[in-house]
């Protein structure tokens, strides 16, 4: 089998993608920054920087620091606002053939509702992703994302206004990811994305100050991949019919395949796009090649095929 013969279509409920490789919000700008390095139309989807009702300036620096196999960030959701996105960015994204997921957030339920309402049924937006899980702002996202009841209430409030497929991006900074997943789905989410960043802290030993101005930041990169794969698997097992985007430390085609096997229908490439802006485009080809090499005709055949062994009880010697 040739890579060209592999069917890469990814079906996530009402959202159908040409392949399972999308990009993650906050790591791909508004997409147009990447046109020198990748054909936007070749990607399964691009998810744009989290949009709020009004433009947001973000946090004072320092905002990022490198950690082993990853980085911490506390950007603070800096963005141009939904209005500027729709008028200044979306037309060109659409002209370039990009499948666009609009990630949105608000400090309050009303703000979430207003952003979603502003997007309305714009057909140039393939789906809306609710960011209920940003750890880097004093108010905002994570207030909703850390508590299943608050999350359910928010999704219920937004759902009737969302006229495009609705994705909810979950926080991993919770005791029970399945409870949050269930709350979002019960309230009407079409698709779940997981995971957002894990809250971390890095310290400058000389000054004894946090390396990041916000004190804590969100950890991303390959360091978090096993946590993300585990959470995708847990949610898939508990809610087998719910379409999932897997996110967390994806760098290679093998990483994509691992997420698919764990139960993700598609993935979002995040921090790796900072390191190599052409990566997502290459992964589309490399996933097809991986499938061809392994005799997998449809990449969707891999989804949720993890073979687990029964866990043995421990024994004492």
């Amino acid at each position: 089998m040739n890579a060209g013969d592999v069917d890469l279509t990814a079906r996530l409920g009402p959202l159908v993608l040409k392949n399972p490789v999308a990009t993650a919000s906050g790591t791909f700008g508004y997409g147009l920054e990447f046109t020198d390095y990748v054909s936007l139309a070749s990607l399964g989807a691009i998810t744009v920087k989290g949009l709020s009702l009004r433009p947001c300036l973000g946090n004072p620096p320092p905002r990022i620091c490198e950690t082993d196999a990853g980085m911490l960030n506390a950007i603070g959701l800096q963005n141009i606002g939904v209005e500027a996105f729709l008028t200044e960015k979306l037309p060109e994204l659409h002209a370039r053939g990009a499948t666009v997921i609009a990630n949105v957030w608000g400090d309050t339920e009303d703000e979430f509702r207003s952003v979603v309402e502003r997007i309305g049924d714009d057909p140039r937006v393939a789906a809306i992703e609710l960011n209920v899980s940003c750890p880097n702002v004093v108010k905002g996202g994570m207030v909703f994302g850390n508590d299943p009841a608050a999350l359910g209430a928010l999704v219920s409030a937004v759902r009737p206004l969302a006229r495009r497929p609705l994705i909810v991006k979950l926080s991993p900074n919770v005791t029970d990811i399945v409870a949050c997943a269930r709350a979002a789905v019960d309230a009407g989410a079409d698709v779940l994305s997981l995971i957002n960043t894990l809250v971390g802290l890095a310290i400058d030993l000389e000054t004894r100050e946090p390396k990041i101005g916000f004190t804590t930041g969100g950890l991303s990169g390959p360091a978090i991949r096993p946590v993300a794969v585990r959470m995708v698997w847990e949610v898939r097992r508990a809610l087998p019919g719910v379409p999932l985007f897997g996110i967390g430390g994806i760098e290679t085609a093998e990483n994509v395949v691992e997420f698919l096997i764990a139960g993700a229908d598609a993935v979002q490439v995040g921090t790796a796009s900072f390191r190599d802006p052409g990566l997502a485009g290459r992964l589309v080809r490399e996933v097809a090649e991986w499938c061809a090499r392994h005799g997998v005709q449809r990449s969707s055949d891999l989804v949720g095929t993890l073979k687990t062994r029964p866990r043995a009880e421990h024994r004492y010697a």
């Binding site: 791909f28 920054e33 973000g58 960030n73 796009s273 900072f274």
Partner: peptide, 23 residues
């Protein structure tokens, strides 16, 4: 000079405070 993750305007990690209140 600033620490930056991407170098092309996407990570927004390298900002400095501007006179106009923006970063």
């Amino acid at each position: 000079e600033s620490e930056m993750a991407c170098g092309f305007g996407v990570c927004l990690g390298c900002v400095v405070p501007g006179r106009d209140g923006r970063f």
